[in-house]
């Protein structure tokens, strides 16, 4: 969260927004947050957001799922109670593996998908009964809101510049907790 004053700058076009983001960052102003109604292609790069590592998480979760499946079936089918099923005695996990592959795969996907989504929800702080934090309801409709850090800048010239980048509305937000 930005400390002190921030400007909420509204745009109503994604191309204008992209151009504006580049101009604002070129002028060394700090964009602390952006709210958009849909994923604007390339916005994360333009804002200089670091890559998300969710895919790597998912890969690791998948490996965990694979291990869980293997250990579980090895314990149940080989160690705890080996049986001779369909003429295929269960004394070796490897030799019976074709029959275990489907569930190894399913659990890999199960873990990779669900744990990744849970990670995503937690990281982005979204869950039931969470209060929405978009400052203007139109940012889920057709407006794009940039939160620009106004601390240490002249508000008037900053807002003039922002209007020049194509902003449609600007408002000054005073964060009380930092005042």
């Amino acid at each position: 969260m930005a400390s002190g004053n921030v400007l909420h700058v509204l745009y109503n076009d994604d191309d204008v927004l992209m151009k504006a983001v580049k101009e604002i960052r070129a002028k060394k102003y700090r964009i602390t947050e952006a709210y958009t109604p849909f994923p604007v292609h390339g916005l994360d790069k333009a804002m200089g957001l670091p890559h998300t590592r969710l895919a790597i998480c998912s890969f690791i979760y998948g490996l965990i799922g694979l291990s869980v499946a293997t250990l579980m079936m090895n314990f149940i089918m080989i160690e705890d109670w080996p049986r001779n099923i369909g003429g295929k005695p269960s004394f070796s996990y490897l030799q019976n593996m074709p029959a275990f592959v489907p569930i190894m795969f399913e659990l890999t996907v199960f873990f990779a998908a669900h744990l990744m989504v849970i990670t995503f929800y937690l990281r982005s702080k979204i869950w039931p009964f969470k209060k929405a934090e978009n400052p203007d309801p139109r940012t889920t409709d057709d407006h794009f809101l940039l939160e620009v850090d106004a601390a240490g800048h002249d508000i008037d010239s900053l807002s003039k510049f922002l209007y020049e980048t194509g902003a449609s509305e600007i408002s000054l937000i005073h964060n009380e907790e930092h005042a």
Binding site: G86, G87, K88, P98, A99
Partner: peptide, 12 residues
């Protein structure tokens, strides 16, 4: 590969 192998292996 697996589809073919598994079914033939399984049915024997």
């Amino acid at each position: 590969w697996f589809g073919q192998f598994m079914l033939i292996w399984y049915a024997n």
